[in-house]
Amino acid sequence: MNYTLFTLSWFETILAGISVLAIYSFLYRENKFYRLFEHLFIGISTAIVTIEPIKTFFWQTTLKPLLGLDRLAFPDGTYVADYDFNYLLFLIPIFFGSLYYSILVPKYSWLAQITIGFLLGISGGMAFNATMVEVTPQIIDSFRPLYINLPEQSARENLINSLNNIFFLIVLFSTSCYFFFTFKRKPNGVVEKISTSGRWLMMGCFGAFFGTTIMARLALLIERLQFMVDHWWVAVMALF
């Protein structure tokens, strides 16, 4: 890639490279350069995280219709649609949400707890739906046939799939046993032995997670190093 000096894309690449170097300087030790860019990142990401929901949700779906700004006027001054007074109901959550700010006034800070409590209650109520939506399909999927004999598959495929399902259920059952504390387990009892095997299988699961995490992080690292070599270094060399 070629860069023309002092253009917008050149500045972008140079600054992006400096940012990467600043973050990687932490590998040597904690330093001012790293701290500065860390705070820069926090400031920028806070602004983005703050503005984006306002831009994409609060303005588009709430404030704009509430203020009637989503209604377009025809050239003769009439409107496409009448103002929908139901939008005024948005004032209820806005007003109720503004109680959060009473936390800044010690005398009335308890009012903020009403809103916080209300939201906590909502998250509690929502948990029923959210949990069942996530858990139910997984429970259904866990009831797998232990013996598969599909005519469209070869005998070998049927055998492999049956063994896979048996292994799947052994792992699921023994790992579940590890978290089963309803009654006291006898030392060297059956449940204890199953739960120990569950622990071993969980170790395998954690190992798999760990391997996946390492590879994901390394992919990011490789992408950054590629950027430094293929883009940033080329942009720097354009100076000479």
Partner: peptide
Amino acid sequence: NLSSPAFRAIFF
């Protein structure tokens, strides 16, 4: 067959 069922049990 290993990671998915073990994680599923933890998730339950």
